[in-house]
Nucleic acid binder design. Structure first.
Length: 272
DNA sequence: CTCCTATCCTGCGAGC
DNA sequence: TGCTCGCAGGATAGGA
């Protein structure tokens, strides 16, 4: 469930809670059957180096340990980082602990274990990052870019908006919200979206994501802040998870259908 | 190349 | 009350 606004919320909180730089002293892996093998040896090689800063690319968290790189973390559906101070408590589904010289411990908890990790050296060339499209808030994401990227695509616009190679960070929830605010039907063929409509998608993508960040992300399923607090944007969904409820704009019922295995919500009257 | 489906996993709520 | 079942959706492998 964590999409760009939720990951961004986590990144900002982690940076507030961890001193920088903080020297890594121990890497503890509590279970090995995560979605992929946690790069324990590689991360241990950063011992003695300080955690500099935590940034985000798409839905990935990047823990930088300096010029040699760092740890890349994807939260999957239910991944959650928290910060504790020694002595720490163990909770069900705690999988990884990173101990620092400040006595702070960064703990990764993930009930469904959809999250995954890798060590990175260069974020521009890493295999998980190199093919990701522009960040929604960057100048590279604009109407001309979107129009040309969609030109040859025949699939439905909603599914294609979730393709990370097109634009970074949009998942199932925000795809529905963006298209509602853009007045575009999610089933429209991507190649038939006009340039003017592309401009609306770009604009609404930025507005929805920025608003969601301002509200601390959405806790629709089980997203939690580093502090354990919930986000606030789920109360501001205009269509997502609102099937059968009145459209905030026209009052008619919000529709729902499954596209590429994911639930899509939209207003069949407001969206053309 | 493009698009779709199945897969991984646990927790929760609906239905009986 | 207690059980089963289906669904929630990140990315990706593999097939049409």
């Amino acid at each position: 469930m964590p999409e760009l606004p939720e990951v961004e919320t986590v990144v900002r909180e982690l940076n507030l809670q961890l001193p920088s730089p903080d020297q890594l002293v121990e890497v503890e892996l509590l279970r090995k059957d995560l979605r992929n093998l946690f790069p324990k040896k590689k991360i241990e090689s950063f011992k003695g180096e300080g955690l500099q800063t935590i940034t985000r690319r798409s839905k990935y968290l990047l823990f930088s340990f300096g010029p040699r790189g760092g740890l890349l973390s994807h939260l999957g559906m239910t991944g959650h980082w928290r910060v504790e101070k020694e002595p720490i408590t163990q909770r069900l589904h705690d999988h990884i602990r990173l101990r620092f010289s400040s006595k702070k411990v960064l703990i990764y908890n993930d009930p469904r274990r959809f999250g995954f990790f890798d060590a990175y050296e260069n974020i521009k060339t890493h295999k998980l990052l190199k093919d990701i499209g522009p960040e929604p808030f960057s100048d590279d994401f604009n109407a001309d870019y979107l129009k040309s990227a969609l030109k040859t695509r025949k699939g439905p616009i909603k599914t294609i908006l979730m393709n990370q190679a097109l634009v970074a960070g949009i998942g199932n929830i925000y795809a529905s919200e963006i298209l509602f605010r853009s007045f575009i039907k999610p089933t429209r063929s991507a190649g038939k979206i006009t340039r003017e409509e592309c401009a609306r998608i770009v604009q609404q993508t930025r507005e929805v994501l920025a608003e969601a960040i301002r509200f601390g992300g959405s806790s629709f399923d089980d997203f939690k802040h580093v502090s354990g607090e919930k986000g606030g944007f789920q109360d501001r969904f205009q269509v997502y998870d609102r099937a059968g409820e009145p459209c905030v704009s026209c009052g008619k019922n919000v529709s729902k259908k499954v596209q590429a295995g994911r639930s899509t919500y939209w207003c069949s009257f407001c969206q053309k």
